[in-house]
Design a protein around this nucleic acid. Sequence first.
RNA 1: GCCCUGGUAGUGAAAUGGAUAUCACGACGGUCUUCGAAACCGUUAUUCCAGGUUCGAAUCCUGGCCUGGGCACCA
Length: 585
Amino acid sequence: MMSEKLGIVVREALGALGIEASEVVIERPADIAHGDYSTNAALAYAKVAGVSPRELAGKLVEKILETPSEEVKEIEIAGPGFINFRLTDEIIRKENSKEEISLKTSYSGKNILVEHSSPNLFKPFHIGHLMNNIVGEFTARAMQVGGAQVTTVAFPSDISLGIAKAIYVLQKDGGTSQQMFNDTIASGSFEDKTKVVNYLGECYTRGVTLAKENPEFESEIKEIAKNLYNEIESGELHNSVGYELWRKVQLINTEYFDTVLESIGSKLGKVIFESEVAKNGKEIVLENTPNVFTQSEGAYVYVPSEERKDLNTLVFVNSDGHPTYEAKDLGLIEKKFREYGEIDYSLFITDNEQTHHFKVVLDAAGKISEEWKSRADRSIHIPHGRMLFKGQKMSSRLGGVPLALDVIGVVEEEVRERAGEKIAHLSDEEKKKLEREIALSALRIAVLRSKPGMNINFDPESSLSFEGDSGPYLLYTHARCSSLIEKGRKRGYNAKFKDVPVTLLERELAHFEIVLADAVENIAPQKLVTYLFEVAQLFNSFYAENHILGEDKETSEHYLAIVKRLKEVLSQGLWVLGISAPDKM
RNA sequence: GCCCUGGUAGUGAAAUGGAUAUCACGACGGUCUUCGAAACCGUUAUUCCAGGUUCGAAUCCUGGCCUGGGCACCA
């Protein structure tokens, strides 16, 4: 990559002046008008050199110019002592003619596990899951374009005291639920499954309330939990009513979950159920007591060291002898590194309220052994924030915890209102597909334009998500490009860069790879999103002022080459963000 | 109380310690007989407070104030 070459050039120039530079920063200038790349080396090393930054910059430029370069057209000293490089037009055009992107990142050639979108088998897919999926899908795709071998994993919650409470309610409801489940399994329709899962969510809430208000049910609920753990862990099925219900729920919800994911343009490779790692997690804890874990009040806990003020004691195995979430996560780590080959990194995306939990779990894991220390070091938690709603329509339509598909539905309604006659000619099926794509682009961009981990405010009514910095804006620009290329083709124009001075837009477009690499390396979707807005805006201004398809074939073909490049940058960039870009909208 | 986040125009956000702190929404005023007006052009207003480190601070350090989250048998 160009930035690396320049880095070497600058370091050598510093060396020639007797300055040993460990690291030289080559960056994109804040303003592209300053040049294609710049370095602050003169500012950074002025003190060592004992001269003013501008003076050092002058000397550096002199040194650099001693070796002629085919790639650099101009070198300028600017501001307090920045050195700006402007590349030759040929290099820019060459960069913009690239068909394939190949990024060099620290993930290249690595084997990476990305866990995200994990459902709870007794809860419908809600807004938190959607948020998780948006960040998770980006992370997985980023690793993939970054050159990694990626395996995506879901880790559904299917066993816990909370679930035992829900099963308790299911049992109380008796025959109706049994009948409902059987009918659903027989029919296989998504509508039926959705009904069941919504009902399960209700049972979960009811169970939690019931247990809270009626402590006398506690022993019965604990009995269910105990049986479930026993039956699932031992593999010896006693065919209790609870287990039978549980099996059916697992079947129905797993299929429901796959369909929901597919409908939001996502997919997961593997599934590891919580129940699969419970037993193992517990054993790990017991085997490492008392060297890592300690017994306290009938439970097995981890007490972090005094220096770690940010951590505190958590229960890993409770006094009933059941592994908590903490122990199950140990089991999960073990399973991931044992069964998924040579894992270089294991990334997992969750709500940011779990940040503390994972810190403690990883700290504990690191204490078990050398091998575990290495596993903990390669396990990286990526937290995401919450999605908050502002508009009235949202709050009235979506009470309590909003379901993902309901949220998308509300956004689709807004899309329909805005699209109006533009999509009237499409078939109902095409309309539905397009509305979904546009709605998802709005949601995904609304989330990914901010740093992961931040809460985001989403307001489909105030047009915040449809105009300006929005998903539909990028889709619109992409569709505009597609339309131009198609029209150009009909006229017999071929996209081809001509030997004319390159514009700022072309210079920006040439930076796609370096921006993408940066966004991938740092798992920073907002950097990519910001860049896509920049190039789209530059193009839309250009479009308003220039006629792309004019009488002059040479000019039109050159403009079309720019359009083609922009279309590729947009569609590739959007893909990484989990968004598909239609040719028409 | 302790710990972890975050505090940037009226609103939502961006900015490896760097150049005049970007972008959008909103508001106001313009642009469709011409390639897609979900677009474009113009006007508008800001780094929580007090110190410190640095050639240079929204960014790092210290102390306040405020938001959100977490703090042993839930996940």
